[in-house]
């Protein structure tokens, strides 16, 4: 059995769509942005005029007030920093391990045939299932949380890198042979740039999963972090805090993804130009 070229399931969802037709945004785009705002305003209005008491689903003003209070006391910053630090560390470990394993599995068919079936099986394990084991092994503090996040990041990156190396155009490798590139030169001048776009897409998919897994890790037991805010809000009966934390997750996730795209954009100029031409 070989590595499945099925990163598509994870990666295709995050394919960048950077086709901008004109300077004026499509009215449908405006409507898409406006929809949640309109719903929020309507809900605010409904609570204000007394159609609902807004106890289980607080109005935007209350959510904002709750988050503002947390921000003023400095708590919110602490929670965000804790979550980001975990995602950052888990992402770094997972991405490095996934890239190395993927490169080895993509480069050697023998190794791939030996390790890929096991990795595919492990990939099928739901993330939460690891938590009890990791807590036993690594304790209830940061290590187990970071390990869980790293696991989540590892698989999409591994699959992406391995399938990209397997799928590399052999005709381009022959160009390298003709010019007598060494193994190292071939890796640096042909393999690396050819694999780069897929790798970056895989990293984005991994980062998204990292944010999913950090919630799982923090819900299982933490004294700080946005996931802790969720649990705390549930125990204290504070839906405003829960919704606020959810919104913070959405913003952070989007921000991290955008940052990753911006940081790696210079590496893919040749692709962007091509897309703009087409």
């Amino acid at each position: 059995m070989s590595v499945h070229i099925n990163t598509g399931t994870e990666a295709a969802q995050t394919v960048p769509t950077t086709v901008r037709a004109s300077r004026w945004p499509d009215p449908r785009v405006l409507a898409g942005v406006g929809l949640p705002i309109v719903i929020a305003l309507l809900w605010e209005l409904a609570v204000r005029v007394g159609l609902s008491d807004g106890r289980l689903m607080p109005p935007p003003s209350k959510i904002y007030a709750a988050m503002a209070a947390l921000a003023v006391s400095g708590e919110l910053q602490v929670h965000i920093a804790a979550t980001l630090a975990r995602v950052g560390a888990g992402f770094a470990f997972g991405a490095i391990a996934g890239t190395l394993t993927g490169a080895i599995a993509g480069g050697s068919e023998t190794i791939r045939r030996v390790i890929d079936p096991s990795l595919q099986a492990l990939r099928a394990v739901p993330s939460i299932a690891w938590v009890p084991l990791f807590i036993l092994w690594l304790g209830i503090f940061e290590t187990s949380k970071i390990a869980l996040i790293a696991i989540g990041v590892f698989f999409p990156v591994y699959l992406g890198v391995a399938s990209a190396i397997i799928g590399i155009d052999r005709k381009l490798l022959e160009v390298g042979r003709i010019f007598r590139l060494s193994r190292f030169q071939t890796a640096r001048r042909i393999l690396l740039p050819a694999v780069l776009p897929v790798w970056l897409t895989a990293l984005r998919a991994g980062l998204g999963l990292g944010f999913m897994f950090v919630v799982a890790a923090e819900i299982m037991g933490a004294s700080e972090g946005l996931g802790y805010l969720l649990v705390d809000g549930q125990q204290m009966g504070r839906p405003d805090q829960i919704v606020g934390a959810i919104i913070a997750f959405a913003l952070l996730g989007k921000l991290a993804d955008t940052l990753l795209v911006l940081l790696t954009r210079p590496l893919l100029v040749w692709q962007d130009t091509a897309r703009a031409q087409l």
Binding site: K171, L172, V175, I178, I190, L196, W270, Q271
Partner: peptide, 20 residues
């Protein structure tokens, strides 16, 4: 006995490296 510096080849397709 392998690719030789004195021998060059142009393939049927251009085979340019798209990132260069």
């Amino acid at each position: 006995s392998g690719p030789h510096p004195a021998v060059g080849i142009v393939f049927q397709e251009p085979r340019l490296l798209p990132w260069l």
